[in-house]
Amino acid sequence: NKFNKEMRNAYWEILLLPNLNEQQKRAFIRSLYDDPSQSANLLAEAKKLNDAQA
């Protein structure tokens, strides 16, 4: 399933972002589970926040 693969990839990438705190990571991951079809958008948002907090 395409969404499962995308979601899994986004999950691990979000977990490994160094500048997000645990609460932020949990919020993004919760959103991933709520709507896996938004994986790419959520990952992009997480990366943007990660860069902003660098």
Rank of each mutant, 00 (worst) to 15 (best):
N1Q: 05
N1S: 04
N1I: 09
N1H: 04
N1G: 13
N1T: 04
N1M: 02
N1E: 07
K2Q: 15
K2F: 12
K2W: 06
K2R: 09
K2G: 14
K2L: 10
K2A: 10
K2Y: 04
K2I: 12
K2V: 06
F3M: 04
F3T: 03
F3I: 12
F3D: 06
F3P: 15
N4L: 07
N4I: 06
N4Q: 04
K5M: 02
K5T: 02
K5Y: 04
K5V: 03
E6I: 04
E6S: 01
E6Y: 02
E6N: 03
E6F: 03
M7T: 08
M7H: 05
M7W: 15
M7D: 03
M7G: 02
M7Q: 13
M7A: 13
M7F: 15
R8K: 13
R8N: 06
R8L: 14
R8G: 04
R8H: 05
N9V: 11
N9S: 14
N9T: 10
N9A: 15
N9D: 12
N9G: 04
N9F: 11
A10W: 03
A10T: 11
A10M: 03
A10N: 04
Y11Q: 08
Y11H: 09
Y11S: 04
Y11N: 02
Y11M: 06
W12Y: 15
W12L: 08
W12E: 15
W12V: 06
W12T: 13
W12R: 15
W12M: 06
W12D: 12
W12A: 11
E13W: 07
E13A: 15
E13K: 15
E13Y: 05
I14H: 00
I14V: 07
I14Y: 00
I14W: 00
I14L: 07
I14E: 00
I14M: 09
I14P: 00
I14Q: 00
I14K: 00
L15D: 01
L15E: 02
L15G: 03
L15V: 15
L15Y: 03
L15K: 15
L16I: 05
L16V: 06
L16Y: 14
L16W: 14
L16H: 13
L17Q: 12
L17Y: 07
L17G: 00
L17N: 02
P18L: 05
P18D: 07
P18F: 04
P18S: 08
N19A: 05
N19G: 11
N19I: 04
N19E: 10
N19S: 08
N19L: 10
L20I: 06
L20E: 00
L20F: 02
L20R: 00
L20T: 00
N21R: 08
N21L: 05
N21Y: 15
N21K: 07
N21W: 14
N21T: 12
E22Q: 12
E22D: 14
E22I: 05
E22N: 07
E22S: 10
E22F: 07
E22P: 09
Q23A: 08
Q23L: 12
Q23G: 11
Q23D: 07
Q24Y: 04
Q24V: 08
Q24F: 04
Q24E: 09
Q24N: 10
Q24I: 12
Q24T: 07
Q24G: 01
Q24W: 05
K25N: 00
K25R: 07
K25Y: 02
K25T: 05
K25S: 03
K25M: 05
K25P: 00
R26Q: 10
R26T: 10
R26K: 07
R26P: 01
R26G: 05
R26S: 04
R26D: 07
R26Y: 07
R26I: 09
A27N: 14
A27Y: 09
F28R: 01
F28W: 07
F28N: 01
F28V: 03
F28H: 03
F28G: 00
I29R: 03
I29F: 07
I29V: 11
I29N: 01
I29W: 05
I29H: 06
R30S: 14
R30F: 10
R30E: 11
S31Q: 10
S31R: 10
S31F: 08
S31E: 12
S31W: 12
L32I: 06
L32N: 01
L32E: 00
L32M: 07
L32P: 00
L32A: 02
L32Q: 02
Y33N: 05
Y33Q: 02
Y33G: 03
Y33R: 07
Y33F: 12
Y33P: 02
Y33V: 06
D34A: 09
D34N: 07
D34Q: 10
D34G: 12
D34W: 06
D34T: 06
D35H: 03
D35F: 07
D35V: 10
D35G: 06
D35N: 10
P36T: 05
P36Y: 05
P36E: 04
P36W: 06
P36I: 04
S37D: 13
S37Y: 12
S37I: 11
Q38V: 09
Q38T: 05
Q38K: 15
Q38F: 08
Q38H: 12
Q38S: 11
Q38W: 10
Q38G: 09
S39T: 09
S39W: 03
S39L: 13
S39K: 10
S39F: 14
S39D: 01
S39I: 02
S39N: 03
A40Q: 11
A40W: 11
A40V: 13
A40R: 06
A40D: 08
A40L: 13
A40N: 09
N41G: 11
N41R: 11
N41K: 13
N41Y: 05
N41Q: 10
N41E: 07
N41P: 03
L42K: 10
L42I: 15
L42G: 02
L42F: 10
L43V: 06
L43Q: 08
L43H: 05
L43K: 09
L43T: 06
L43E: 03
A44K: 12
A44R: 12
A44F: 14
A44N: 14
A44Y: 10
A44S: 12
A44G: 11
A44I: 11
A44L: 10
E45F: 07
E45R: 12
E45H: 13
E45L: 07
E45T: 13
E45I: 07
A46P: 00
A46S: 08
A46V: 04
A46G: 02
A46T: 02
A46W: 00
A46E: 00
A46Q: 00
K47L: 07
K47H: 13
K47S: 06
K47G: 05
K47A: 06
K47R: 08
K47I: 05
K48Q: 14
K48W: 15
K48P: 00
K48R: 06
K48F: 14
K48H: 13
L49G: 02
L49P: 00
L49Y: 11
L49I: 11
N50G: 05
N50I: 01
N50K: 01
N50W: 01
N50M: 02
N50Q: 05
D51L: 15
D51E: 15
D51R: 10
D51T: 13
D51H: 14
D51Q: 15
D51V: 11
D51N: 14
A52P: 06
A52M: 12
A52W: 13
A52I: 15
A52K: 11
A52V: 10
Q53E: 13
Q53V: 15
Q53H: 13
Q53S: 11
Q53M: 12
A54P: 09
A54W: 11
A54D: 13
A54R: 00
